[in-house]
């Protein structure tokens, strides 16, 4: 084990700050932060793909799969244990990624984006057709316990928050280490020039495949977390607009640091919540305008504001 570097220290400090601060946050803010952290995991997975030169417009596939996997554990097996739900979600999304990833691994650019979109829309179509799963209305999920210990309503909120925060920190640190490892460093190499990577003796296909699976695992986990936090799931999670929103937040955050996705996600949730409240008739316009401003003036994402000193933090 090497000593934690700056990014890792920030991630861990952030985790402690969140865990301590969370106890004092008002309920609505706690919910918002929990949700932002969970969605930040998806954005983090997109960061990995973007580092590899790939953008997915179908990440809703795993997001939705994770959520439904968790939901079915509750619905069919009547298990309300958060730990079981999350593990099953992780397993299911990994399993699907193992297959879908094989197909996707030879695609790049817009075709990667569109093929993943097609897969997520097929899942959407299937779920809309399943009356047993509530069709477009979806169904509710209740967490009653965590790793065997039963929960009260108040402790449930904090637990989900703490879970999201811990996953976020662990995922950030893990991703940071991965990106710094031999395999991880191949990602930008693939993005920059696949031929060279092949000449150097590494398999581009394997790098893409592996990264797709890691991304899917993170996204499935995030989907399950979101499901537990919101308490309700529906096929909308697989719809292309959901995926598009994640890509937007990923661009907003930039790929400079593994911490950026969580910040971007939080800012986006705040922006939308306030646009909703103060401009209920034109919130789309507000979000669209914000998006254009970021793309124009912060082309490398919001992290540019922090990373001005020029050093790439990754």
């Amino acid at each position: 084990m090497r000593a934690p570097d700056r990014t890792e220290k920030i991630a861990l400090l952030g985790l402690f700050a969140l865990l301590a601060g969370g106890a004092f946050l008002p309920q609505w803010a706690l919910f918002l932060v929990t949700l932002a952290l969970a969605k930040g995991l998806v954005v983090l997975s997109l960061l990995l793909l973007m580092r590899t030169g790939l953008v997915s417009f179908g990440h809703g596939l795993y997001y939705c799969l994770g959520a439904y996997a968790a939901g079915m554990v509750g619905q069919l097996l009547h298990v309300g244990d958060a730990a079981v739900m999350l593990l099953v979600a992780l397993a299911v999304s990994c399993a699907v990624a193992l297959i879908v990833g094989l197909l996707l691994a030879s695609y790049r650019g817009i075709f990667f984006a569109m093929l993943s979109l097609a897969f997520s829309m097929i899942l959407y179509g299937l779920l809309v057709k399943s009356a047993a799963l509530g069709s477009t209305d979806g169904f509710n999920i209740t967490v009653t316990a965590a790793a065997g210990a039963s929960l009260s309503s108040a402790s449930r909120r904090y637990l989900l928050f703490a879970l999201s925060a811990s996953f976020a920190a662990m995922a950030a640190v893990g991703m940071h280490r991965f990106l710094g490892s031999h395999l991880g460093r191949l990602a930008p190499a693939v993005r920059d020039n696949e031929l060279r990577v092949e000449y150097l003796g590494a398999s581009v296909r394997r790098v893409v495949y592996l990264n797709t699976i890691i991304a899917a695992a993170l996204t499935g986990l995030a989907g399950a977390l979101t499901a537990l936090v919101v308490g309700h799931i529906d096929p909308e999670m697989a719809y292309w607009t959901t995926s598009g929103e994640f890509v937007f937040v990923a661009i907003l955050s930039g790929t400079a640091s593994v911490l950026a996705p969580f910040l971007g996600s939080l800012l986006f949730e705040l922006l939308r919540s306030f646009a909703y409240q103060y401009s209920p008739n034109t919130w789309q316009m507000v979000v669209g305008a914000a998006m254009l401003l970021v793309i124009m003036f912060l082309p490398t994402g919001l992290w540019a504001v922090f990373g001005r000193r020029g050093k790439r933090v990754a």
Partner: peptide, 23 residues
């Protein structure tokens, strides 16, 4: 206090919490 119902259930659950706990 008016809230737009558009945007899906996840957003509506957030907005509901917001209505009750912030507003």
């Amino acid at each position: 206090a008016f809230i737009d119902e558009a945007g899906g259930t996840t957003k509506q659950v957030s907005e509901y919490r917001d209505l009750v706990q912030r507003q």
